[in-house]
Design a protein around this nucleic acid. Structure first.
Lengths: 222, 222
DNA sequence: CTTCGACAACGAGGACGCGCATACGCCCCA
DNA sequence: TGGGGCGTATGCGCGTCCTCGTTGTCGAAG
């Protein structure tokens, strides 16, 4: 799940970004409205968290432009101002939710998750299973054939992505985009290396995680 | 008191809902398992009444998903099937009680009230236990393997938070928010230091309080 | 069937950064 | 004013993950 955070206050920005990353999101940061808009139109985010008061381009305008450009991405506004009128204006501009500073991070997290859940209309599952491999997002525990497997963060992230797309081919570019925050090809073989490490832990008999030469990989549940 | 009723048969649904409302409960209705799960994860209900045979997502799966998402809400199953095996499976899946159709409404009511009474009592308990570690909220006393351990207020608070989320990963951000009242990252290593102090007292062999690198910590009962 | 090129797999090495530990200092309360 | 509690500062060790070079494998064309 990719989230864009548009916030000019570096303290709040790092706080929100850190928290979301710890909760398993891929997070991009933008420091002003223009940059935020550029990121948002360039990448398919699952949610946007934006401050109302932003340099260069205010949050409300940002969302309006985003909407006129056809994007349906759910937007959560942050603001110090809390009047009913402000909330209404935010929602009229195309925002989906509103949070007043100061806020508890857990509330932000809950709202972001709610927005994503609503927009994807997918029920939030806390575990993903494909074949004999199960991955629990809450405990970060992974089991294969009942055996517990210890995974690194990157490996966990990759496996989650593969399981969510089990049976479908995922390209290396898609993996780079979701497991890393790269929106470009860093010209390396990180993916290959990570796949190798993941196989050693999760697919020792090499039946599950198959290579599609020249394209990417498929996870075939067994 | 909020109750969620998940039942696809409209006659039974309205019968149960009406009766509960008349008894003073706030009642929400869901017609299938997916909807029910969505409601249940989105709202803090005091009890859930669910049919076993549901469209889209069966009652048993519903409860399993609910439990893995961390919810402790008591669940009462309704079912036409009444074999002992069915009852066992229902309880294994995380259900709290079982009622066979057809049933008298007064019995349903009595059971729902009993479930709520039991669960709220459990919440108000004055001690939290996970594995061999017990923490008494009234006396502020902590024991590990029967031995009394002296804790400072902050350490106590952290341990309480960890025990209440035992088995689940808690991020540093969440800890900062609950143990301190920071809604911003104070850019320090307070959490690390406190974890270190807590480990020295409560987890000398370092088996319980484990590090999830880049994310936070898990308390694994032992 | 052979050959060659391209891509993938794998192992080793190394840099960076996180978490841990320890020492220190401030502040509150007795 | 002394001591305990607790936040701060800092160096170190190690885990994690990226890079690089080599080996292995696949596939297409001759």
């Amino acid at each position: 799940m990719r989230v864009l955070v548009v916030e000019d206050d570096p303290k709040i920005a790092s706080f929100v970004t850190k928290g979301l990353k710890q909760s398993g999101f891929a997070v991009d940061q933008a420091a002003d409205g223009e940059q935020g808009l550029a990121y948002a139109v360039g990448t398919a985010y699952d949610a946007v968290v934006a401050d109302i008061m932003l340099p260069k381009l205010a949050g409300l305008q940002l969302v309006q432009r985003l909407r006129t450009s056809g994007s349906q991405v759910p937007v959560l506004f942050l603001s110090a101002k809390a009047t009913v009128e402000d909330r209404v204006r935010g929602l009229q501009a195309g925002g989906d939710d509103y949070l007043t500073k100061p806020f508890a991070f857990s509330e932000l997290l809950a709202r972001v998750q709610a927005l994503i859940r609503r927009s994807t209309q997918a029920v939030e599952t806390s575990s993903v299973t494909a074949g004999d491999v199960t991955l629990n997002l809450l405990t970060r525990a992974v089991t294969r054939a009942g055996e517990v497997v210890e995974l690194q963060p990157r490996e966990f992230s990759l496996l989650e992505y593969l399981l969510r797309h089990a049976g479908r081919t995922v390209t290396k570019t898609m993996i780079l985009e979701h497991v890393w925050d790269y929106s470009f090809d860093p010209q390396t073989n990180v993916v290959d290396v990570l796949v190798h490490r993941l196989r050693a832990k999760v697919d020792p008999d090499r039946r599950r995680l198959q290579t599609i030469r020249g394209v990417g990989y498929v996870f075939r549940p067994v």
